[in-house]
C-alpha cells in the first residue's frame, strides 16, 4: 500500500475504521489486526470504487464487511480463542477508552448481533436511514424500527450503569 494512498484516502477516515473495528474486537491485538486488514482491503478494492456513493460510505461498507467476515472466521476457530484468553486479559487495560461511559456503551454494543452492531454504529455516526440501508444492504423502511429496537435493548443493557 503506498504511503500517499494511506495518508490521503484512509487516514482522514481512520476514526470510522477504528470505531467499527472496536465494536467487533475484544483485544488490542485483534483490533490492530482488523484495522490493518480493513486498510489493506480498502487499498485492494480502490479500483472498484466508482463514485456512486461517498468515499466515507464506501469505507463504512468495506469496514463492516471485513469485520463481519473476520468475526465469522473467528467464531469458527473459537477453540483457539480460549487459549488466547490470558493474552486478551493482559491487553484489555491498554484497550479500554478513558471515558468510562463509552466503554460501557461499547460493551453493550458488543452484546448485540453482528448486524445490529453495524446498524447502531452507523446510526450513532449520524448516517441517514437511506445510507444505513445502502451500507447494510436492506430496505430503508425497516431501519427506523430496527434502530428503535436496538436503542431499547441498549438502554436495558446500560440500565443503572450510566448517570
Amino acid at each position: 500500500m503506498s504511503n500517499d494512498f494511506y495518508t490521503l484516502k484512509i487516514l482522514p477516515y481512520a476514526g470510522i475504521i477504528i470505531k467499527i473495528c472496536r465494536a467487533y474486537t475484544d483485544s488490542q491485538e485483534d483490533f490492530e489486526d482488523y484495522y490493518q486488514e480493513v486498510c489493506l482491503q480498502i487499498w485492494r478494492s480502490r479500483e472498484q470504487f466508482r463514485g456512486d456513493s461517498k468515499w466515507s460510505t464506501w469505507i463504512y461498507r468495506l469496514s463492516l464487511n471485513i469485520c463481519l467476515t473476520f468475526i465469522k472466521k473467528k467464531q469458527k476457530n473459537k477453540q483457539h480463542v480460549n487459549a488466547d484468553n490470558k493474552m486478551i486479559a493482559d491487553t484489555i487495560d491498554n484497550y479500554a477508552f478513558s471515558d468510562e461511559s463509552l466503554n460501557l456503551l461499547y460493551d453493550a454494543i458488543k452484546k448485540l448481533s453482528e448486524i445490529d452492531r453495524a446498524v447502531i454504529l452507523l446510526y450513532l455516526e449520524e448516517k441517514s436511514q437511506k445510507e444505513i440501508a445502502e451500507i447494510i444492504g436492506t430496505s430503508p423502511n425497516n431501519i427506523g424500527v430496527r434502530v428503535n429496537r436496538i436503542k431499547e435493548r441498549l438502554k436495558k443493557l446500560l440500565d443503572g450503569k450510566i448517570n
Binding site: 487516514l11 481512520a14 476514526g15 477504528i18 470505531k19 483490533f31 490492530e32 484495522y35 490493518q36 477508552f97 478513558s98 471515558d99 461511559s101 463509552l102 460501557l104 456503551l105 447502531i120 450513532l124 436503542k151 441498549l154 438502554k155 446500560l158 450510566i162 448517570n163
Partner: peptide, 21 residues
C-alpha cells in the same frame, strides 16, 4: 440518564485514545 447518542458523541469528543494503529 445520558442518551446513547450523547455518550457516543461526548465520549469521542473527549477521547484521546483514538490512536491510529
Amino acid at each position: 440518564e445520558k442518551s446513547i447518542e450523547h455518550i457516543w458523541k461526548h465520549g469521542f469528543d473527549v477521547e484521546n485514545k483514538l490512536i491510529v494503529p
